[in-house]
Every structure is written in structure tokens, then in C-alpha cells.
């Protein structure tokens, strides 16, 4: 950016923006359309959604950091293979950690932990940001995008678990009196199509509040 070598503070305004932008105006899911596959499949309950959000954030942060540190020595022709190897190794680490400490969630997530490798957020951010920026901003960019992704996952997991099974994080919170009165859990919220419709509604709300995001 600048040719002068003045030392930039670790959390300068520009770096803080790297974290805050992806939460809203540059959200990876609703605006950049990256990483949708896993966002929808793991959000029937809040707990797996949260674990998935944390795993993806960790992998984006460190893959951005590593690729950015190596960016000057990667031959451009084979960069995709190099990126995939770095990502795949990080995902293996995450997968083994999940299997060791939260085995039940890792069973629920099944193939979707492995699919973090081909999650478009990773390749998208590596290509768009980490390949042309210094390690620290890249790390923050990974953190921000992971958090923006996690935010949508948690909204989805919260809504679907609340209406679908009347619970949050596995604890039922809808009082029994309401069920006696005739309230029923809406099983439709658990099914895959509802996840798509909820994301559609989130996009609708976000774009009607930020008209500059509307496409024609």
C-alpha cells in the first residue's frame, strides 16, 4: 500500500475493518456467495453449527496465514495444488481434534468436516486476499470471514433448532404448557429445504436494509 516502512499498529483502523466487514457488508455467505454447502447441511441443530463455525474459522485463519507467508515462493502454475495441500493438512488436524474431544458432534458432522477442504470460502479468500497481502492482515481477514460465516451458521442453527425441535443447544426451552395448549414443533424446519429458504429470507432482510447490495 505505502512505500514507506512506517510500523502499522497491530489493530489499526484498516485491520479492524478486515474483521468487521465480513460480518455485514461483505458477508461470505450472503454477499460473496462462498461456502454455502456446509452452512446449510450442518445447521439443523445449534451445537454442530457452532462447532462447524469454530472449525472453519480456525482453518481460514491459519490457511490464510500460511499461504500468505509462502506467497512469494509459490509458483503460480501449481498454486492450487499447494493451497489444497495446506488446507487439507489443516483440516486433518481439525478433524482429529474433533474426533478426540467432541466425538458425538464429529459423528453428526460426518463428511462435512472433510468438505471444509473444498469450502469455497477458503480458496476464495486465499486467491482474493492471502496471495497478495502480508501475513498479519491475511490472518485477520481469515478471522473476519470465519466469523461472518459463523454468524450466519449460528442464526440458522438457532432458528431451525428453536422452531424445529423446541430446544436450544439440546435443552428444550418451549414450556410444556404451550404443548398442552396445542403447540407443535414444526418438523419442516429440520428438513434441508427450509435451510435454503431461511438463507433466502436473511438475504432479503439484509438487502432491504442495504439497498446498495441489490442486484438487477
Amino acid at each position: 500500500m505505502s512505500t514507506k516502512h512506517e510500523k502499522e499498529p497491530l489493530f489499526s483502523a484498516r485491520n479492524r475493518k478486515l474483521i468487521s466487514n465480513p460480518l455485514g457488508m461483505e458477508n461470505p455467505i450472503t454477499v460473496q456467495v462462498l461456502g454455502i454447502c456446509s452452512a446449510l447441511a450442518v445447521t439443523a441443530k445449534l451445537k454442530p453449527a457452532f462447532v462447524m463455525a469454530v472449525s472453519v474459522t480456525v482453518v481460514t485463519m491459519f490457511s490464510n496465514l500460511i499461504i500468505s507467508a509462502m506467497r512469494n515462493s509459490i509458483p503460480p502454475r501449481i498454486r492450487i495444488i499447494v493451497q489444497l495441500v495446506v488446507i487439507a493438512s489443516l483440516v486433518i488436524v481439525v478433524d482429529q481434534v474433533l474426533k478426540a474431544y467432541v466425538y458425538d458432534v464429529s459423528r453428526q458432522l460426518s463428511v462435512f468436516v472433510g468438505l471444509i477442504i473444498t469450502n469455497c470460502i477458503l480458496m476464495g479468500r486465499l486467491e482474493a486476499f492471502a496471495m497478495s497481502n502480508k501475513p498479519w492482515p491475511s490472518f485477520l481477514d481469515g478471522l473476519g470471514n470465519g466469523l461472518g460465516y459463523g454468524l450466519i451458521l449460528i442464526i440458522l442453527g438457532f432458528t431451525r433448532e428453536l422452531f424445529g425441535s423446541g430446544a436450544i443447544w439440546g435443552y428444550s426451552i418451549v414450556p410444556q404448557a404451550l404443548f398442552d395448549f396445542g403447540y407443535k414443533n414444526n418438523g419442516f424446519f429440520i428438513l434441508p429445504p427450509m435451510a435454503l429458504i431461511i438463507v433466502g429470507i436473511i438475504i432479503w432482510i439484509q438487502r432491504s436494509r442495504n439497498p446498495e447490495l441489490v442486484e438487477d
Partner: peptide, 16 residues
Amino acid sequence: PAPLRGLGIAFIITGL
């Protein structure tokens, strides 16, 4: 509706 155009409606159609 304008805010749904493009991506939003594509999601909802896929759901349907």
C-alpha cells in the same frame, strides 16, 4: 421484490 432479486430468489427456488 428488488432485495430478493438474483441470489435471494435462487435460494428460495432451490428450497421449493
